[in-house]
Design a protein around this nucleic acid. Structure first.
Lengths: 200, 200, 200, 200
DNA sequence: GATGAATGAGTATTCATTCAT
DNA sequence: AATGAATGAATACTCATTCAT
C-alpha cells in the first residue's frame, strides 16, 4: 500500500490494518490485566482502541483468539529475551541470576502484559495449563542436566521442581509488579535466586 | 419423641435445610473444580444438587457468595489441619515436612476442593489476592523468626520468600492432584521440602 | 368457638385466626401504602405480620385478594362514615362540608389506608376503575337532584362533574396527608368546599 | 448524492437507529396504556416494535427509562401546546376554556399517550409525584395572580386548589377518552370550565 | 392452623457475534 | 477495511404459591 495509493482514496483510511490490530492488542492487554478475560467485553476493547465494534472481528475470530495471541506472543518474546540473556553464560548460577533478572526486567517494562500472563485473579480461559506447560519442560531439562552432573541432589524430582520454580518465579514477580513498593527489585531477584536449587 | 431425642436432632425442616445447603456446596465444589466460576451456572449447580433453581438463592445470595464460602471454609480447615500437624514439633525441618505432608494429604482427600482453591484456570473471582494473602503472612513471620535465629541467610527477603513458598506449594500440589501419575506422593513431598529455605 | 374449647387444646394457638388475619391486613396496608402492590412481596407481608410465609395463603387466595379486601373494606367504612356524617343535614352546602370534613378526618386517622386507596403512585392492580366507579354514581345522583331543583346550572354534566369531584377530593386529600404541612386542615376543607358546584 | 441532500438526511445507520427508537416508543406507549408499566415486558415491547429483545437495551437503559422518556416528552409537548393555545388571550375565562379545549384535543389525538400519563390503573413507577408536581406550580401561580387581582375568594388556598384543578382535568379527561361515549366533548369541556374557580 | 423450605415459571439484562451499509 | 445497529441465546435472580411436617 503505497503513499500515492492512500492519496487517491477519497476517504483516507485513518490508519493501516496493522495499526488497527496493534491498537486492539494494546487496549485488550490493559483491560485484561485489570479486569480479566470475562470482565472485558469485545465492544469495550474496540472502543478503547478507538475502532468500531465490528472491526474487532475483522482482526480476530473471537475474544479467546485475541487472548491466546496476547499470551503466546508474550511468552515467545519472554522466551527469546531470557534465551539471549543467558547466552554465553556457562556458570549455572550466573544463568539463573541472568534469567531471573531478565524476567523481572520484562515484567517491569510490560507490567500489564505480565499480569495477563501470571496475575492473580487472571482467569486464563482454560489456557493456564498451556501457559505454564510451555515453560516447565525447559526448566526440567536443565535440572536433569544439572542432576546428571552431580550438581543437584537426586531427591529433587525434575518435573516437580520445574513446576515449583515456574510457579515461584511467575507468582512472585506478578505479586511484586502489582505493587513494586513491596520490596526492591534486588530483593526480589536475590531471594528468587537463593531459592533456586542450583544456588544451594 | 422424647426430650433427649429432640435435643440431638435438629427440627425436621432445619435438617432438610442444612442438607440441601450441603448438597449445593458439594455439587458446586465439583463443578467449580472442573469448569471454573464462570463456567458454571447457578441453575446447573442446583440441578446437580437435585434441587430447583430457586432453591440456590434460598441458601446463597449469589454464585460469588457460594464460591467465597467454599474457598474460605476450605482454607480454614486447611489451616487447622496444618496447625495440628506441626503441633509439638520443634525442629523447623520437621515442621516443614509435616506441613507439606499434611497439605498433600488434604489435596488427595479433597481433590476438587483443592483445585478450586489453587487449580490453574481457576478464576478466583477477584479473591485470589485474599486467598494467598491469608496464607503468606504466617509464612513470612516464621521465616523472620528463623532469620533472627541465624538459620536463614539475611539475603532472603521474608515477604518475597513467603510468596514464593506459597506459590510453590499450592501450584505444585494442584498440578500433581490434577494427574497423580506425574510423580509419586513422596517425590512431591521430598522435592517441596528440599526447595524450602530451611532445608538448605 | 367457646372459651372452654380453646382451653382443651393441647398446644395453645399463639393467636386466633382472626387476629392473624388482622395482623396480615395491617402489615399489608402499611407496606402497600409506601411501596405499592408490586413493590411488596407476600413473604414480606407475612414477616412484617410476624407469621410464616405459608400462613398468608391460609387467609387469602393471593396477594390481589388481600389488596381487594383492603380496598373495598376501606371504601365500605368510608361510605358508612360519610353517610352518617351527613345524616340529618338538609342543606346541600352543609352536606358537602360535612362529607368533606369526614373524608379528611378519615384520611388523618387512616393515613396509610387512604394512601392505598388514592395515593399517587398507587398501582391499583387494575381496580382503579372499580374504586372510583363505586363512588361516582352516588355523587352524580346527588348532582342530578340538585339540577332538577334548579340549584345547579344545566350546563354541568352530572357524570362528568361527579368524576371531577371524586378526583378532586381523593387526590387533594391524598396529597395533603402525604405531607400535612402543605396546608392546614381547614384550608383543605374550605378550598374543596368552595370548588364544589353547590357552593357557587 | 448532493451536498444539500446529505445535509437534510441523517446517515443511513443513524436514520435506522432513530427509526428503531421511535418504533420502540410507539409500541411501548400503546402497551403501557393498556397494561401498565408492570404488565408489559421489555421483550414484548421489542417484539411489538418488530425488533429483537436486545435491541431494546441498545436504546434505553431499562424499562423505567423508556417510561420516563415517554412521560416527560409527552408532558413537554402538552405544556407547549397549552402555552400556545392561550397565547394572546387576556381574559382569564377564555384562557381556562382554551387550555381545557387544548387538553381535550391532545387527549383525543394521543389517546394512549394520555392514558399512560393520567390513566387510572397507571402505575407511574414512583413518578406520579413528578408528573403532577410539574403541572401544579404553574396553576398555583396563576391562581395567586387572580387572587391578588381580587378575582378569587381569599378562602381558596392556591396550592390546594391547584392540586384540585390538576386532578380534576387529568382524571376527567382520562375517564372520557377511555370511553368517549360517556359524554360529548363539549359537555366535558363545558363542565370542566364551569368547575374552575375563575368561572364562578 | 401454622410453618418455612422448596418450587419453577417468569423477567430483566448482557454480550459475543453478524451483516447491511 | 471499517462501521455500528441489530441479533437472540444465555443467565442470573425473583417471588407467588405449594405442601410435607
Amino acid at each position: 500500500m503505497s503513499v500515492s495509493e492512500s492519496r487517491i482514496r477519497t476517504t483516507a483510511p485513518a490508519r493501516s490494518r496493522a495499526d488497527t490490530r496493534r491498537r486492539l492488542i494494546e487496549a485488550a492487554t490493559d483491560l485484561f490485566a485489570s479486569d480479566g478475560l470475562h470482565g472485558v467485553t469485545s465492544a469495550r476493547i474496540a472502543a478503547e482502541a478507538g475502532v468500531a465494534t465490528g472491526t474487532f472481528y475483522l482482526h480476530f475470530k473471537d475474544k479467546a483468539e485475541l487472548f491466546r495471541e496476547i499470551v503466546f506472543s508474550a511468552l515467545a518474546e519472554l522466551s527469546e529475551r531470557t534465551r539471549v540473556a543467558i547466552d554465553g553464560l556457562d556458570d549455572p548460577r550466573s544463568q539463573v541470576r541472568a534469567r531471573t533478572a531478565e524476567l523481572v526486567a520484562f515484567a517491569e517494562e510490560n507490567r500489564n502484559l505480565f499480569l495477563v500472563l501470571f496475575g492473580r485473579g487472571t482467569e486464563s480461559a482454560g489456557m493456564g495449563d498451556e501457559v505454564l506447560d510451555s515453560l516447565t519442560p525447559g526448566i526440567a531439562d536443565a535440572l536433569r542436566a544439572r542432576a546428571r552432573a552431580g550438581q543437584l541432589p537426586p531427591e529433587l524430582h525434575p518435573a516437580v521442581a520445574a513446576q515449583a520454580i515456574a510457579a515461584m518465579h511467575s507468582r512472585v514477580i506478578a505479586w511484586w509488579v502489582e505493587d513494586p513498593t513491596r520490596a526492591t527489585r534486588d530483593e526480589v531477584i536475590e531471594t528468587l535466586c537463593r531459592m533456586h536449587p542450583v544456588h544451594r
